[in-house]
Each structure stands twice: as structure tokens, then as C-alpha cells.
């Protein structure tokens, strides 16, 4: 089943076309890799899908519904979460609080309550909501074995843990679809190895994963399917084996490496 699909998605900044008529499909349950040289438009594509940016033209469909141009918070609430290439934690909040923010809309919001009903409730049931959010947040911290660091400020965490915390925070929103933007950037080989097993564990939870990555070993190892962007265009799509053999890809990207 197709979980997410972009059709002819284009994003132009003035005269510069960052993403050009991209058709991109994400199959449910698979790990999809999105690769391509720097400036190929990978992060722009992520931004346009997750609501941080609005496509110039083209559409995005998620679970069969059009979500083009919807606000980032409503796309998140529909079950799409992401991380960033340059880690964007809430630096001055604690590790636990970071993940608790991911639980924000899961607790205490109900369609029957009015605008400020939830504010009032948030204040009155200070203890209850807090408890509920904490419990779930701790669960995700334990998933990454970060439980012991829960009271540290996020900015004080070592780099590798910060990357994990960002994923934990995204998972706390209970997504069906998770976008990881260069999760292995800056990691040493052992950390990358560990990350691979984490991504497999995430898939085992029934979450569909899409990742942008430059580490070819990681991509070829864990991705079920790969899409290649070059100069904002989708130039190839297929299994890791097919991608490795694709002459267009070799020319655009892999040709520089001896693989």
C-alpha cells in the first residue's frame, strides 16, 4: 500500500528550482532511502511534505488524503514525524521535557473541548496530564536507553545521544511515517551500526521510515527501496541492487565512489 505520495511536486525559490516535478512514493512498512548529491533537493522535499514549506505546484497525498500546504502541526497530528539534519532539540529543556513536548497533543485534547478549555484543564489537572505525558515520554527514552539522562538539559548531551533524543521526541508523537534527515551524520562506525539496529527496531514497531543519508553503507544495508534525486529531479527508484547498477545514478552520484 502507498502510504505517502507526491505528484509533480515542485518548489521554486524565485528562479531557483530546488525540487522539480518529483513523483515520490513511500510504500507502507518499508524503509525508503532518499539519496542524491548535496543540493539535490532532498531536505526541501522533506520540508514540503512535512508542512514546513509549501510547494509551488504539485500535490502530496498521505493515506489517500491530500495534505498539500497543510500546516506542520496538523500534518504531525495526522501521524507524520521528522528529525533534522542539523539537530534541532529544545536545547534549554531537559531530555524528558523534549520528549514530553512530543506528547503535547496526545494528552488532554479532545474535539469537544473549546479553545481555552484545554488551557484551563492544563492548569487544573497539572499533576494528571504531567503524569500521563511523563509515563509515555519515559517509555520512549527507555527505547533509546536514555532514561538515566532524563533530567539533563538537552544541550548538555553528547552528540550521539542528541541524535537519538531527536528520534525519541519524533516517535513520541506516535507517527505512522517517520522522516529521518541524515541520522548518521557525524557518527563514528560503531554509532552508525547502532543506529541501523535502532532503525530496524523502529520498523518492527510498524512505523514506515524514510531517510536521507550520505552513508552509502547504511543506505544499501537497511533500505528496502531507494529514490535518487539529482538537480531537484527524481532520476531513479528501485532496490539497492538496482540503484547500484543504474548508469544514471552512477554518473550522477555513485560514480565518484568505488562501489
Amino acid at each position: 500500500m502507498i502510504l505517502l505520495e507526491t505528484k509533480q511536486l515542485t518548489r521554486a525559490y524565485g528562479g531557483v528550482i530546488a525540487v522539480s516535478k518529483v513523483d515520490f512514493e513511500v510504500e507502507q512498512g518499508l524503509i525508503t532511502g532518499l539519496i542524491g548529491p548535496n543540493g539535490a533537493g532532498k531536505t526541501t522535499l522533506f520540508n514540503n511534505i512535512t508542512g514546513l514549506d509549501v510547494p509551488t505546484s504539485g500535490t502530496v497525498h498521505y493515506k489517500g488524503k491530500e495534505i498539500t500546504g497543510k500546516s506542520a502541526h496538523s500534518i504531525c497530528r495526522m501521524g507524520v514525524a521528522r528529525t533534522f539534519q542539523n539537530i534541532r532539540l529544545f536545547k534549554e529543556l531537559t531530555v524528558l521535557e523534549n520528549v514530553m513536548v512530543g506528547r503535547h497533543f496526545k494528552v488532554g485534547t479532545s474535539p469537544t473541548k473549546g479553545r481555552f478549555g484545554s488551557v484551563l484543564k492544563s492548569f487544573i489537572s497539572l499533576g494528571n496530564e504531567e503524569f500521563e505525558m511523563k509515563k509515555e515520554a519515559l517509555h520512549w527514552l527507555d527505547f533509546f536507553e536514555l532514561g538515566e539522562l532524563s533530567d539533563e538539559l538537552a544541550k548538555n548531551l553528547p552528540y550521539g545521544h542528541q541524535r537519538e533524543l531527536e528520534i525519541a521526541r519524533a516517535l513520541a508523537t506516535e507517527p505512522s511515517l517517520l522522516f529521518l534527515d541524515e541520522p548518521a551524520a557525524g557518527m563514528n562506525p560503531q554509532e552508525t551500526e547502532h543506529l541501523m539496529s535502532t532503525i530496524r527496531r523502529i520498523r518492527a514497531l510498524g512505523i514506515t521510515v524514510v531517510l536521507i543519508e550520505h552513508d552509502m553503507k547504511l543506505v544499501m544495508n537497511i533500505c528496502d527501496t531507494i529514490t535518487v534525486l539529482n538537480y531537484g529531479q527524481n532520476i531513479a527508484q528501485g532496490t539497492p541492487k538496482e540503484i547500484k547498477r543504474n548508469p544514471l545514478v552512477i554518473e550522477a552520484y555513485l560514480g565518484k565512489e568505488d562501489e
Binding site: T50, G51, L52, S71, A72, H73, C76, R77, A81, R82, F84, R88, F90, K91, E92, L93, E97, M100, V101, G102, H104, F105, V107, G108, S118, V119, S122, F123, L126, E129, E130, M133, R169, T173
Partner: peptide, 30 residues
């Protein structure tokens, strides 16, 4: 102080003041 430090909305407020875009991506209606 209690509201800002301890409540759900207070946390969302602090998160928003630190990084609006990321708060949105966590489902916070900024």
C-alpha cells in the same frame, strides 16, 4: 511559574519560544 514549568501548555510555550518550527512539527499549534 507552576503553569510555565509544570503544565502541558507551559511546556509547549517554552518549546515554542525556543524553536517555533520544531514545535509545530511536534504538533503544537503555535
Amino acid at each position: 511559574k507552576l503553569f510555565i514549568d509544570r503544565s502541558r501548555m507551559g511546556k509547549a510555550m517554552r518549546a515554542t519560544s525556543l524553536d517555533q518550527d520544531t514545535a509545530k512539527l511536534m504538533g503544537v499549534k503555535v
